[in-house]
Amino acid sequence: MSSAALGKRAGRPAWQEPAKPVTKAAKGVALAFICLLVLVPFLVVISTSLASPDEVVANGGWVLWPEHPTLDAYRDIFRGGQVTKAIGVSIGVTLVGTLASLVATTLLAYALSRPQLVGGRKILLGILFTFLFPPGMIPAYLVVKQLGLLDNYAALIAPVMINVFNLVIVRGFIQGLPEELFEAARLDGAGEWQVLWRVVLPLSKAVLAVIGLFYAVSYWNAWFHASIYMSDSKFPIQQVLRMYVIQGAQLADPSAADAAAVSAPQTVRMAVVIIAVIPIILVYPLVQRFFVRGVLTGAIKS
């Protein structure tokens, strides 16, 4: 979906019949309904997290519009218990992991995109093969154990450092850059390193932004590896959320001793959901404009 294709769709082409009012209305209703299906659950959770515990109990566990909005639930969370710690863990793992993944992916994609590399194609095929046949849970666990990474934050990053899908996108993008650019840079006396730094990276900003978002989201959303590799005190936010909200565990931190938190943990639980989802909602609008341009041209063209 290049910008030209988008432009083509703008407005009705001459050969197309004008839409009937009924069709238009039906489409509008359908689209509005779809958008509401997506958005209403978030609204309910936000409202419940902002309501007073009494109101939530009185209404049977949720509210659509809090009558007396309060931030008490959030205060409870940030009072310094397990949730606070987990947010710190998640932020750290997401930042370090995204950076490591971006660097490793870009370097590998760049090397594999250069035609002169001996055996480059064989390496690429091998990597694509691992993608079709991912190692099972147990072999992966044994590797982490052998490396002595159990209960080490590195276990949340190293085993998932490069995603083949992202690698293929970046490689495809770099390969799509006009060969003359590389020639010109080389004539100017630039080495491989300078070509990467001065030519490739500045031109790849859009695709790297998208890949960075994919990586950041996957690190932020991850919980399963933490549940098998880490001890309770090092859990990230999603795993803590899973314990409280889905498995119904009690908040094990001092803040839970607070009477309000115990009598209506629902507000606190919903506040944890919001905290876990907010970074995504915040970053998403910044990067979504690259989706169409960056990802698709890279992946679909080939």
Partner: peptide, 14 residues
């Protein structure tokens, strides 16, 4: 972009 943990929590809530 929403994690499965949150999706499941949302469905429970609804």
């Amino acid at each position: 972009f929403i994690s499965w943990v949150i999706v499941v929590a949302l469905f429970q809530q609804i």
